[in-house]
Simulated scan of single mutants.
Amino acid sequence: MADSFELASGRKLWDAGSITAHVLVIRSENDFWSRPEDVTTLVQDLRRAASVRTVTIPEATHYVHLDRPERGRSRLIAEVTRTLAQPATMKAVD
């Protein structure tokens, strides 16, 4: 609860600036917890990442990983699989 309060107040709990790996940021369009501006801020903080790719899954919810395939789960799995299949030295493409 304390972490949730801090995050809602704009406090960062960790520094994404130290991440140097390729990064995939997935956000569900109807996620009650994740806001579009959170993704923007995270991407700005990932200044040292090898690459950053963002994906918004239309009409999906916070629980997309538990939902039916047609409600976004298939897209989530496809995006993660696509990212993991890339060679580590390859730049991600949108």
Rank of each mutant, 00 (worst) to 15 (best):
W33I: 11
W33K: 08
W33G: 10
S34Q: 10
S34M: 05
S34G: 01
S34P: 07
R35C: 02
R35T: 10
R35Q: 01
R35E: 11
P36A: 01
P36W: 07
P36V: 03
P36L: 00
P36I: 04
P36R: 01
P36D: 05
E37N: 11
E37A: 08
E37K: 10
E37F: 04
D38R: 06
D38K: 07
V39M: 03
V39N: 04
T40F: 04
T40V: 12
T40Q: 14
T40G: 13
T40E: 15
T41R: 07
V43G: 09
Q44H: 14
Q44Y: 12
D45W: 11
D45E: 15
D45N: 15
D45A: 15
L46S: 10
L46F: 12
R47Q: 13
R47S: 15
R47W: 13
R47I: 15
A49K: 07
A49P: 14
A49L: 09
A50Q: 14
S51W: 12
V52A: 00
V52P: 00
R53P: 12
R53L: 10
T54F: 03
T54S: 10
T54Y: 00
V55C: 00
V55D: 04
V55M: 08
T56E: 12
T56M: 11
I57Q: 01
P58E: 09
P58N: 05
E59L: 05
E59R: 10
E59N: 14
A60K: 03
A60R: 05
A60C: 11
T61C: 08
T61M: 06
T61Q: 08
H62T: 11
H62Q: 08
H62P: 12
V64W: 07
V64Q: 03
V64I: 08
L66E: 15
L66Q: 14
L66S: 14
D67E: 15
R68V: 13
E70C: 06
E70Y: 05
E70H: 05
E70N: 14
R71I: 07
R71G: 05
R71L: 09
R73T: 09
R73K: 04
L76M: 05
L76E: 02
L76Q: 00
I77N: 00
I77C: 01
I77G: 03
A78T: 03
A78Q: 02
E79M: 01
E79L: 01
E79A: 06
V80C: 06
V80P: 03
V80Q: 03
